[in-house]
Design a binder for these strands. Structure first.
Lengths: 193, 193
DNA sequence: GTTGTTTTTGAGCACTCGCTCAAGTTAAAA
DNA sequence: TTTTAACTTGAGCGAGTGCTCAAAAACAAC
């Protein structure tokens, strides 16, 4: 190999991802991207093919990071429910301004079938996350942390609906007090489900 | 008055609203709008001032319609909780393709403070809806339909979070069976809250 | 050095964007 | 019928869009 790329691919994806997350796909211009990742159009298009391509990478990276974060909280907690709880709290507390709403949910809201590639990618990633959650609730039941009158998938759905609604709500009214109240409510609902 | 406008203002707002609802604000082009409302740019800009102006009208109209629908279901039901239940069911069943997610929630997700007018409008309308819901749960408590260990505002928040999350979830996996299950879950959660 | 291959650069293309405004059309009033 | 004021039309403006590609720069191998 004669020459190597100068930029750090992962850093570029992350920076672009935050911009896409804040502004959405269609409201983000390629010039916005050029300045935030400090690359000229030619390099971007050589590396990612298109705006859509870069967005895809960013969304996949986001989903991966979210899973990793959840895994970290699970492995450093005494119980699965505690792990989930601290994960939700962490996500809500650490969210940068304009990034309160899950990027996957924002993507799910933004794309219709006029953008099939991004629509399908979003669906796939959300489906994967649901499977991951289902597995988690399955083991929680097997460890007797959770009642078994509902299937793991139903718990996963409740979790997703609450998580989605909660983050959407906190995007509007940012307040740590309300946030903590609502997270506690969420886990009371899950335990009593 | 020498001459009158030829178009039906309300119909135009409604048609434009559906397009905005499906595609979002920034992904909707003025040319899309022109064809769906069958008006030439000059007339649109004379009547609404800007794309933002037309969107504002459409969003206000949407919020108004949602309130009206809820009021209708409340007044034709035996109890408040039944009214809320049939309202949620109706919204989920009657939603046109691409319109599963509440337009207000989509707007809340789309706008940041680089579009202060639309951001503030969205916040105001969501706040108004929350107040409306709070009043409803207040009377539900006074009519002994609901426990009083939580304030009406807390019930309103739970309702919003569930409603938001539920519609987001149904946008992804459209299935009447799952929808009914999740609505029943939602109202079980509210009753047992 | 010089060569050969890869990456980076940025001017700029073809197109679409939100929007304007002069000209044309309409219809109540005179 | 003519006047007059309001409404509608659509060509098209300037700015911004996603993206391309020839030229310049970078660097390992010789």
């Amino acid at each position: 190999m004669v020459n190597k790329v100068k930029f750090d691919r992962e850093k570029v994806i992350k920076k672009a991802g935050i911009l896409f997350w804040q502004k959405g796909f269609s409201a983000t211009s390629t010039r916005d991207l050029q300045t935030t990742v400090d690359m000229r159009p030619g390099s971007i298009y050589a590396a990612f093919g298109s705006k859509e391509g870069l967005y895809s990478e960013a969304l996949k990276n986001y989903a991966e990071q979210l899973k990793t974060l959840l895994a970290t909280h699970l492995s450093s907690s005494a119980s699965i429910l505690e792990g989930l709880h601290s994960f939700v709290q962490a996500v809500l507390e650490d969210s940068e301004p304009g990034c309160e709403i899950c990027m996957l949910i924002k993507a799910n809201a933004e794309f219709d079938y006029s953008q099939p590639l991004l629509k399908n990618l979003t669906n796939d990633l959300l489906q994967q996350f649901e499977c991951y959650l289902t597995d988690i609730f399955d083991t929680a039941q097997k460890q007797n942390e959770l009642a078994t009158n509902h299937a793991p998938l139903e718990y996963a759905r409740l979790f997703q609906i609450q998580f989605t609604g909660l983050r959407s709500y906190m995007h509007r009214s940012q307040s740590n007090t309300i946030s903590n109240e609502l997270v506690n409510m969420m886990f009371k609902l899950i335990k009593d489900f």
